[in-house]
Design a protein around this nucleic acid. Structure first.
Lengths: 148, 148
DNA sequence: ATCAAATAATTCGCACACGAAGTATGTTAC
DNA sequence: GTAACATACTTCGTGTGCGAATTATTTGAT
């Protein structure tokens, strides 16, 4: 058991370290433009999928609806996102970027890409392997989630 | 530029998805024992490194000292961790598990390992690749962090 | 010896992030 | 048509998680 434990701990440790590296690498770029990283993710999602609802958005960014609701609140407050009620279903909302949001997304996106561009030094093969293995892990964990 | 952007976005997306999968897979196991995941990480770190200070702890779990301070506060409150002031340096603290903390760590650890054991289906080679590539990414991002 | 700089924790204010509970609206069964 | 259910979102309470500012103590320079 102990060798197996060791392997799992190594993986979780590596994941955590990498995640923190991502976070700290890009944090300042977002902050310099007055938003947070998750807000950047949301802006990007809304650019690619205009007029979506909150449920679809939270699927896209892998969070719960309540989290997305709060993020959207702050983005609307900041004038970067427009939140409309639908006529055909008055429970639902339709989210889209405001012109200011679109403009800011471009600015932040450029900085983010510049910051993360060193990752392009990874060989194409390594990227493929990474995506394949990570995808497999997601599947394995999804199974594991069901059990009592 | 656009193909490069695409590659970076794929990577960040995969990372985020996997991280969320981890989170949701293990969340309930920790919660069932009355702690959170970061609290579990801290307990594990203190088991392996008894009598460390807050700075060393925050290095081990890849967070800032202020975050670690809050987590420790709640663990002390719950009676799982003992926080002593050092005689030789009265600024510093020495952290260690209480007997209750040790006992709970064993219980949570067992559940966590059982939950994550499907990850052992990954081939040894894939695990090696994963750790190698992720390590490389950490290095690349560390470089990227310095720039203006 | 003394005062400035460094170090170790803590506190503060903000923004996630979660599930649970609540509200409003729509759908379905009868 | 109305009552039960389902859906879309919001609100709530708690716990991260961060950097900046603060406090307490130690070290170092003169």
């Amino acid at each position: 058991m102990d060798d197996r434990q060791q392997r799992i701990m190594q993986i979780t440790r590596s994941m955590r370290e990498l995640n923190q590296s991502f976070y700290h690498a890009t944090r300042k770029d977002a902050e310099a433009c007055g938003i947070t990283q998750i807000q950047y993710l949301v802006l990007r999602a809304l650019k690619q999928h205009p007029m979506i609802g909150l449920g679809e958005l939270s699927d896209l960014i892998y969070t719960g609806a309540s989290t997305a609701s709060g993020v959207i609140d702050r983005l609307v407050q900041a004038g970067l996102v427009v939140r409309d009620r639908l006529e055909e279903d008055r429970r639902a909302v339709a989210l889209k970027l405001s012109p200011e949001g679109e403009e800011l997304l471009n600015r932040v996106g450029e900085r983010m890409m510049k910051r993360l561009s060193p990752l392009l030094q990874l060989s194409e093969e390594d990227v493929g392997q990474l995506l394949r293995i990570q995808g497999q892990m997601v599947n394995l964990l999804q199974q594991a989630r069901e059990e009592p």
